[in-house]
Design a protein around this nucleic acid. Sequence first.
DNA 1: TGCCGACTGAAAGTTTTGATGCATAGAGTC
DNA 2: GACTCTATGCATCAAAACTTTCAGTCGGCA
Lengths: 283, 283
Amino acid sequence: MNEGAAGASVEQVLDLFDGVRLTPTQRRIAHCLVQHAPAVAYLSAAEVAELAGVSQPSVTRFAVALGHDGYPALRRRLRDLTIATPTGSADGGNELQQAVRAEMGNLDRLAAQLADRDRIAETGRLLAESRPLPVLGLRAAAPLAAYFAYFAAKVHPDVRVLDDGGSLLTDRLEQAAEAGASAVLAFVLPRYPRETLDALRDARAAGLTVVAITDSPVSPATEHAHVVLPAAVGAQLVFDLHTAPMTLAMVLLQAICDAAPADTQRRLEAFEASAARRQLFLG
Amino acid sequence: MNEGAAGASVEQVLDLFDGVRLTPTQRRIAHCLVQHAPAVAYLSAAEVAELAGVSQPSVTRFAVALGHDGYPALRRRLRDLTIATPTGSADGGNELQQAVRAEMGNLDRLAAQLADRDRIAETGRLLAESRPLPVLGLRAAAPLAAYFAYFAAKVHPDVRVLDDGGSLLTDRLEQAAEAGASAVLAFVLPRYPRETLDALRDARAAGLTVVAITDSPVSPATEHAHVVLPAAVGAQLVFDLHTAPMTLAMVLLQAICDAAPADTQRRLEAFEASAARRQLFLG
DNA sequence: TGCCGACTGAAAGTTTTGATGCATAGAGTC
DNA sequence: GACTCTATGCATCAAAACTTTCAGTCGGCA
């Protein structure tokens, strides 16, 4: 992946001046442009003028001299240079490729957010300690809950998937709390089924700590959850793409494993032995 | 670019919302802010308004609600956040971040592979024509099958999820073929449950065209499938990450929709009407 | 059912920002 | 040494952006 935006743009900013004869004042402005490369794209003509120690009209004339319609046009150009240098293979391609690349963007933001390991580690401990561990996901989020639970069950002795709604849902939540659960993991994704939010409220009322994986830090889940873990949902195709929430779920599961490495190891080995005996898999 | 800057700012953008009660419209704006984090710092109030689908005054009010003097003040704040953040975060980072970035690599390869639209479009037609359409995924792949089927059912009149194994599985495959199915979509992921491959063989014997989404062009699925769509599985964490197969599944679903746009539109509208009537979702 | 309050968008009003005409200063030329 | 041409800043005007006001709508509540 390419360099920082600043580095790339200095080169390109220079290209803007190519072959154009500049007056001394304009040269000063140009110099100022390269020097404050990224910031200038935000400034008004008057601000650039002050920065360069020239008059505001000179900045306008400078923009025109470079062949633009006016100062705003030049600034737009600068913005494009500093911002629109996207990851590697550029944008474009067909609409399917664009959707996939947008999804990469979602993952990148997720990665940035994971710089702080402590937060996720603590949430992992929280969930690891809950016996049983209810995992809630309705409608579109149900598969994600099942996916998480499938793997989680290999390292946690009592994972309970709650993936159908109706009145039984609250029963199950309360039963889990009764059986000793201290936390619940919920997947709350667009379009936010009403049932899901009701269930969150019930879970909270039952004394459970609510951990929500949801699509945005300002999703409807925030007001019902104790811990909110955001991961964007892709919306470029006809239907939503849940790759970032899925990734976050597995990262969280990793944190759960890390919370009790010895237990995890023991349980995984037990599963392997069983799988081998039953010849579940190829190879 | 790398999204280093963008990613970091998303975190900080959130701090701006802290503790403030937002109206639905303002929530939309907030959502739009996080989503287009870096670019918004350049936009005028009216542009943000259009992006968020609200009126321009609402954007001003949003800025004031957050405690600023006006929209320009909020934008200045955003600029400071996006600029002051060192571009940072190339490769490296902690192991969680590395895993997520590896997943981005998988998606990138998937995107490259989608340059050829025709192949996926043809496969989409193949599946769209099958009535019913059986979707097979066992064990770890079961949630993916369910996820695909959940959405596919909104645009296809008869989707049948086959996600538990046992002897009934083959019964169901044969029943689907009997009922008129011409193709089957199968998710074949590591660790390749024996049952899954047996089912593929049976499906083929029943005269179904087998489309397999699998983790590699040389996976065990290839010898039983007519069409093989590969998408890598992430293996950096304790458990497998299925984001690329998930993405491929949704791309394939898009192709299915494109195969019969009118039908798709009609069915989606019918669902929307029903959802609205039943008040399934928030908003 | 009717009132009340909150939210939202349209439109008018205000401020900020950018463009242009004009006058001045300096360099080069005859 | 005077003329001319270019470059530059000041002042002004036009346009855009932002804020405020106002009226309509929706949901909650008596």
